[in-house]
Design a protein around this nucleic acid. Sequence first.
RNA 1: UGCCCGGUCGUCCAAUGGCAGGACAGCGGCUUUUGGAGCCGCCUAUCGAGGUUCGAACCCUCGCCGGGCAGCCA
Length: 443
Amino acid sequence: MCDLSAAEIRAYRGTLTTPGKDSPYRNRPVKENLDLFERMRAGEFEDGSRVLRAKIDMASPNLNMRDPVMYRILRATHHRTGDTWCIYPTYDFTHGQSDSIEGITHSLCDLEFENHRPLYDWFLDALQIHHPRQIEFARLNISHTVLSKRRLRELVEGGYVAGWDDPRMPTLSGMRRRGYPPEAIRNFCERIGVAKRESMVDIALLEHCVREQLNKSAPRVMGVLRPLKVVIDNYPEGRVEELDAINNPEDAAMGTRKVPFSRVLYIEQEDFREDPPKKFYRLAPGREVRLRYAYFITCVRVVKDEQTGEVIELHCTYDPKTRGGDSPDGRKVRATLHWVSAAHALEAEVRLYDHLFAKENPLDEKEGADFKTYLNPNSLEILTSCRVEPSLKGAAPGSRYQFERQGYFCVDSVDASEEALVFNRTVRLRDTWVRIQKAQKKP
RNA sequence: UGCCCGGUCGUCCAAUGGCAGGACAGCGGCUUUUGGAGCCGCCUAUCGAGGUUCGAACCCUCGCCGGGCAGCCA
């Protein structure tokens, strides 16, 4: 038993380069120690007034061995035992014993506990109980996020995210809600391996594993995130066709479905450019493109808002001979666009998720900045007037789809309902066009 | 200027005394009714100096660099 205050214990411990010195209470007789410990447990003493320490070696080069504290007085309410105990053991004292009681053979932990292993071993040897072997490994770090429970909690409690299962969180509940398939996570773990050196795995590898799995398993659908109205001038008013669409080109067994086509459609705003830059293959005035599984269309007129100049509507003509997307004369188009029929499409909310942190390593807190200052302000973008194809009606919570040319999305398991479709973007598709644009901007 | 641990392509992991290999990323090409997927190719690494050895990423020594440790936190 040691009556030194916390500050005194610290002072007696010495420093990294100088040995500590013995506590004046170090050689108390066993009988007195036993008595004091009984009374400590009974609650006779003030919080922090005394502690139980292991008598090891105040001159040890390993600070953890300089007579570490085993029990301290703490009047805290425990979530299981309530107020029955006013003394609590330290982690170092407990760790080996709980492992031992559970019959563990190998106790795996973080690299930072390497310096604690001699103490772990010391307690087990002194107690002469089953001795598990502690092995330390590097903790997993992933770029553009944080994984420590303490920091994650800071994000939750500070309201930086919507909760532990916020789809941006690298928690299992977060990743599940985001739509990451379990197989992808397991595969990721297998690929990154386990080692003893500090490392930072590129989040791109995780995303690759997610795409790889989803590419095989996710049914394809068409959904327009930012709708632009298109009128097919030469398509008969009131006419509706049901066109065949493939559910998954990677897996013929997943079959086909019908998608309705009519005179008024929506396409993606970013699939049209009035002044197309180099290598932009999509729709532009006078240009012909394919609507997936439907027809070739040519843009003949652009309607703009008189005030803002914003493009609000396109008029096109279609070639009836290209039904299904093939041209009988063999002429080619460079782009295939996804689309939905305006009259048949379902309205949906789509949540676009991106990296939680803009900085690769948020813990690289240069200039005294807190890791939270590196949060990505664009990690969530909510789109409320998206249009998706009618086959998505009643899609089950948690079910995963590929929105063609956009990415993988899953039905949110919390906010989606019979009436309201809500999708979370799991991960984007690899996008060559984005890369071309970046390369074009550089010079 | 203590003790402990670690340094292999940009990143992560293999090779543990015998041809430094894979994946991701990047770049280029082919193909394509998703600028997706697929296929092909390219790029790039053993921290340094000595030593041991027929032979060293691996063993030894000394440096250098990075991380951890001075809670009655875990």
